[in-house]
Design a protein around this nucleic acid. Structure first.
Lengths: 325, 325
DNA sequence: TCTCCATGTGTAACCGGTTACATTCGTTAC
DNA sequence: GTAACGAATGTAACCGGTTACACATGGAGA
């Protein structure tokens, strides 16, 4: 591998001068600069980031921790983060936590060991020591914690909207699928929906689900209609579960949205391709990722950041699993 | 941050001894080891990987380059890779290439700058200088190139199976959706299907699509039925497009699979949740990722590796968008 | 003429680890 | 008695950059 010494030798200067050229710092004579640049081009040299990082105690790497990239909501977050950071020359070290605190801790440790300059995390444990003791900027994504920098969409409001819309469209026997208990945003949206029913004094049913996995989604859908066959409106905990409910409704000969209305959550890309296409509460996942990236960059590059907590709007996307008002 | 010097001071030994304890190398007296270990625990010390990496010219990082994590086929690959590597203490630097050679080059460069010890890449340009000149192990994933280490599923065979199955199930007017021209695996599966038709002397139609994006998928589905309304069998280039075709068929009042049979490709998780659920050619994406990770580890840790090219089987997953034989 | 400062460049310390080599001590073998 | 070797430990060079500091030069201002 070509090193700065090689370049220095070829250009007939010292390593300090080469470094100055690379970093555009300090004084360098125009002719000298030219010689160095030629040597760099000749050898196709690019500086070793590891050496840089060691001295500066800062790399160009950022740690990204997501629960599970296999859940189609998260790739969009990841993509948003990456696109934003890439524009500023930062790169990602990536890990899936599986909502598991130990795995998270392990990843965070290796992030730190690799001198990452910041972390973006969708964690269920934002208040753990791991994060409190972290002395690099951290942004919570799709999660919040007190005054910590975070980017998220208003889950409670999303839940409220889902309930309001499905009620306004005439469902009387509504079942809410409550997402996994340990996942904060899932509980927020559930609470939001429940609130609306309580406020209106309406009854509703709840099916508690314990994971967001594809395999189990079908199971919950079955349970739902087994326990509450009269259900004519379903507020699903996310679009995957909603898709499973849609399938189960078909299987039972119920037509959607005439017999049963369904509202999903997230607006994953496939929602619009289902038949009937899925009405859902949209979270602007890609933008959330971008915002998180942007916020982290600010935290890294600036002393003061005013808006450390960014809440993005959720919205009802009316498609074909709900009736017209 | 705590450094090895701090530990040495606290334990009353030299840095060399601490290093020996950490790495379990050389001779260390049992009592000394105990003192050092206590100091490490006391300070919650973990060694700086950057410094290590600089001296050793090797990190614990591996570069992973995928076209677009937003396409649901790739998260599974990524997950497989990560899970496998994680077991061996390796971490991922991740990037999306968007099938763009410049972006790829840029990522590969920063991988190298960060002393990654290996690269896994789904590239359309395996024979470019970028990869030829790379002097660290590289595994091509979902792609092949000559004798280079690679893990993939047999696209041609997948295409053949799709054609055979849909023909065997009675479709007469079959339209093949040909995936983007620059994506090798898409062309392989297309060629495989075409082969079968040629061998049987059957006619078929082709719609050439130019991307795998969600947004355009609906467009291609529309085009398909506009140009070939008589189509009673569709071999889609992947499951997303197949989903769009399914939707369009419904919209046109065609029932699936009675009027039109549809076969997808990939077997992304959502396929089984569609209604009707999607018959498709399954690629074992997660396993492909795991295998790629395993192969790379072998290449890194062993001198000789016998099986450098791993081909995984594709299979027909019979669901509800095809009729019974 | 002398001082001061901007310009230009090199030397060497430093970042936090790893490891080659030197040194010391105790035991064993001849 | 001493040569040889294993065990235990420390010193310092090294990895490839960055940068503080020293030093040289030349022109402007007093």
């Amino acid at each position: 591998m070509t090193t700065i010494k090689d370049i220095a030798r070829i250009a007939g200067v010292s390593v300090a001068t080469v470094s100055r050229v690379i970093n555009e710092s300090g004084y360098v004579n125009t002719d000298t600069r030219k010689k160095v640049e030629e040597a760099i081009k000749l050898m196709n040299y690019s500086p070793n980031e590891v050496a840089r990082s060691l001295y500066k105690k800062k790399s160009k790497l950022i740690g990204l921790l997501l629960p599970d990239i296999t859940n189609p909501f998260f790739p969009q977050l990841a993509r948003g983060v990456e696109d934003r950071l890439q524009e500023h020359g930062y790169r990602l070290i990536f890990g899936n936590s599986d909502e598991n605190e130990d795995k998270e801790l392990d990843y965070i440790r290796t992030f730190v060991q690799n001198n990452v300059i910041g972390v973006i995390s969708s964690t269920n444990f934002p208040d753990s020591d791991t994060y409190l003791n972290l002395n690099i900027p951290i942004v919570f994504l799709d999660r919040t914690s007190n005054e910590s920098p975070s980017v998220y969409a208003d889950g409670r409001e999303g839940g409220r909207i889902a309930a309001q819309e499905i009620i306004a469209r005439g469902s009387k026997h509504i079942t809410i699928l409550q997402g996994p208990a340990h996942i904060k945003p899932a509980q927020d949206r559930f609470q939001g929906a429940v609130e609306v029913f309580e406020e209106l004094g309406m009854t509703y049913h709840v099916i508690q689900t314990s994971s967001f996995s594809y395999i189990e989604a079908g199971y919950w859908a079955k349970i739902l209609f087994e326990q509450h066959l009269e259900t004519d409106g379903v507020i699903a905990s996310n679009d995957i579960v909603a898709t499973a409910v849609l399938q189960e409704a078909h299987r039972l000969g119920k037509s959607v949205p005439q017999d049963v209305q369904i509202i999903g959550y997230d607006d994953i890309p496939l929602s619009s391709l289902l038949s009937p296409s899925l009405s859902t509460i949209r979270q602007p996942a890609y933008d959330m990722g971008r915002e998180a990236g942007g916020l982290l960059i600010k935290l890294i590059e600036q002393d003061k950041v005013d808006e450390k907590i960014i809440q993005l709007p959720v919205s009802f996307v009316e498609r074909e699993t709900t009736r017209r008002k």
